[in-house]
Amino acid sequence: MGAEPPIKPDWDQLYRVAEAQEGLFTTQQAAGAGYSPQLLAHYVRIGRASRVQRGIYRLVHFPAGEHEDLVAVWLWSEQAGTFSHQTALSLYDLSDVLPARIHLTLPESWRKRRLRVPKLVVLHYADLLDAERQWVGSVRVTSPSRTLNDCARSALTPDLMRQAARQALHRGMVRGSLSEVEEALKPFGGLGT
């Protein structure tokens, strides 16, 4: 009864993983493709990969991705996070919001963890339903209605809130009532038409 033989490094497998994540991969994903930490360090030294942050790497010759910074944050969250609030509004191109920080919602169970949160990341905690999440490119984002409700609860400025809600309704991104948005905008003249 011996130990299993080591997995042979499989560049194609590592590439497929990174390809779905805008050229990024984690130490664990590399290990799954047969790359030891020593071999990964060697690839960094010879310029085949670069270290983005602790435990997250990038294939150097992979084309730059539109949401690479967000994918790195998502990988930091062990793929448990969902982009939300103003970040989600921006990804959906709802309103003129230009978020200065990245908003990420993690499961409630993460609230107890001691985390070294990446710079410019704001954490929120909620156990999201599958219906409250969807993919925008290579990142998972709260649904438009969940995003609008989150923004209403977090007191997004009334003008941006109204603009985002109107655009979402006009583009058919939400159905039904936006009661939390309407309630938040009531003191400011409501949603309007």
Rank of each mutant, 00 (worst) to 15 (best):
A72P: 02
Y125R: 06
L120A: 15
A126F: 05
W76D: 10
P118H: 11
A80F: 03
W110G: 08
W110Y: 13
S95Y: 00
L106D: 02
T105W: 01
K119T: 03
V73R: 11
S77D: 01
D69K: 15
L123P: 10
V117R: 10
R116S: 10
L128M: 08
R113T: 00
H103F: 03
R116D: 15
S95E: 00
D127M: 06
Q79H: 06
E108M: 15
W76L: 13
K119R: 13
D127L: 08
Q86V: 11
V122R: 13
A80T: 14
W110P: 07
D96Q: 13
L98F: 10
G81M: 04
L120D: 14
S84V: 05
I102E: 03
V73L: 11
L94F: 01
G81W: 01
R111P: 03
E108K: 15
E68M: 14
L70K: 14
S77R: 03
R114C: 03
S77W: 01
D93L: 08
R114A: 07
A88F: 01
Q79A: 13
L115W: 02
T87H: 02
S109F: 09
S95C: 03
E108F: 15
D96C: 12
H85V: 12
S109D: 00
S95T: 12
S95R: 08
L75T: 09
S109K: 14
W74T: 02
L89E: 01
I102H: 04
R101Q: 14
Y92A: 13
A100P: 05
A88E: 02
W76P: 12
V121Q: 09
L91A: 04
W110F: 12
R114G: 05
L106Y: 03
L89W: 01
L94K: 10
P99D: 08
E108A: 14
A88P: 07
V117D: 09
S109M: 08
Y92C: 13
L89I: 14
A72S: 04
P107L: 09
L98Q: 09
S84Y: 00
W74S: 05
W74A: 08
A126Y: 04
S77M: 03
E68K: 15
R111H: 07
R116F: 06
L70H: 12
S90C: 11
V73D: 05
L123T: 02
L104P: 07
Q79P: 06
A100H: 10
W110L: 05
A126Q: 07
L104H: 04
L123R: 13
P107A: 11
G81V: 04
L98M: 14
